[in-house]
Simulated scan of single mutants.
Amino acid sequence: MTAEAVAATVKIAYSPCPNDTFVFDAWAHGRVPGAPVLDVTFADIDLTNGMAERGELDVLKVSYAVLPWILDEYALLPCGGALGRGCGPLVLSREPGLDLTGRTVAVPGERSTAYLLFRLWAADVLPGDVGKVVVMPFHEIMPAVRDGKVDAGLVIHEARFTYQDYGLHCLADMGEHWESTTGLPIPLGAIVARRSLGAPTLHALAAAARTSVLMAWDDPEASRPYVRAHAQELDPAVADQHIGLYVNEFTAGLGDDGYAAVRGLLTRAAAEGLVPPIAPDALAFP
């Protein structure tokens, strides 16, 4: 790392979800040798997406879906994010087999990856258009479906482990549809850093993120206090499932399949008019 990178304090925002606190624990607590100090803001993904669009912080965890709006200012880091298999968003309802044509569906943000996957699934599967889309914080969606405030809900995170506790049924698995139609992993959350920091610092940040991931795998117990402190309402077993599902080989490095998945998602979404098209080299790491 450069001397400038070592001396810097980096302003970063990521979610309090177990996968993010697990990934960043070692770095946030000064255990990554030579890494810049982190000034951490906790915020759910819909908020970090907005922060990135406004250019507010140096490094952020965002939805891959928001990249077309921010890639001029932010570079995609090749590690630290969330992709995977068998970990996609779910569409839930109170009654099994509900036809969503003309129905009201709650989603966790219209610039979320979950929403893009939902719209791509709907374009392929639904006989007609969804009625109304309502944006809600993700933790409010299952109660809203249970209470009949909306007909269905698009859920993310640990909801795939807990939705049955709300008496809900899974209508469709967005990730399963994505994988079956593309053969690619599911792109969910990305780590981005401000391009103006310069290539040496961007590489230093990527190295620190990757080292933090590897340290978390080497000593999982070290991260438990940080994970528990920010997921107090989450059962420890569910937190472990969450980490096991969302922190994987793509977190340590996107690789060819990871980059293909991101390009595939944004290309298909642009073709549907859901996002602006991106330049061919927009995802390249400086």
Rank of each mutant, 00 (worst) to 15 (best):
M1F: 14
T2H: 11
A7D: 11
A7L: 02
V10G: 05
I12Y: 05
A13V: 02
P16C: 11
F22G: 13
F24W: 13
H29R: 09
V32T: 08
V32G: 07
T41Y: 05
F42S: 12
D44H: 12
D46N: 13
D46S: 13
A52L: 04
D58L: 06
L60C: 11
A65S: 12
E73K: 13
A75P: 14
L77V: 05
C79Y: 02
A82R: 10
A82S: 15
G84H: 02
R94N: 05
D99V: 01
D99W: 03
L100S: 06
T104P: 01
T104Q: 08
G109I: 00
R111D: 10
R119S: 03
W121C: 01
A123Q: 12
V125P: 00
D129Q: 09
D129R: 11
V135S: 15
P137C: 04
E140M: 15
A144P: 03
V145E: 02
D147F: 10
G148H: 01
D151W: 00
A152T: 01
H157L: 15
H157G: 15
E158C: 15
R160T: 07
Y163V: 01
L171Y: 06
M174T: 05
G175W: 03
G175D: 00
E176Y: 08
E176P: 07
H177N: 10
L184A: 14
L184W: 12
L184M: 14
G189A: 13
A190K: 13
A190M: 05
V192S: 02
L197C: 07
A199R: 15
A199N: 10
P200Y: 06
A208W: 01
A209I: 04
T211D: 11
S212M: 07
S212E: 08
L214K: 14
M215G: 11
D219T: 11
R224Y: 02
V227M: 07
A229W: 00
E233W: 15
D235N: 07
V238T: 09
A239L: 03
G244P: 13
F250A: 02
G253A: 12
L254G: 02
L254N: 00
G255M: 12
G255Y: 06
D256R: 14
Y259F: 15
A261M: 01
V262C: 13
V262P: 06
G264I: 00
T267L: 05
A269R: 07
A271H: 03
V275N: 01
P276G: 08
P276C: 01
P277D: 04
A279E: 08
P280M: 10
A282N: 08
A282M: 11
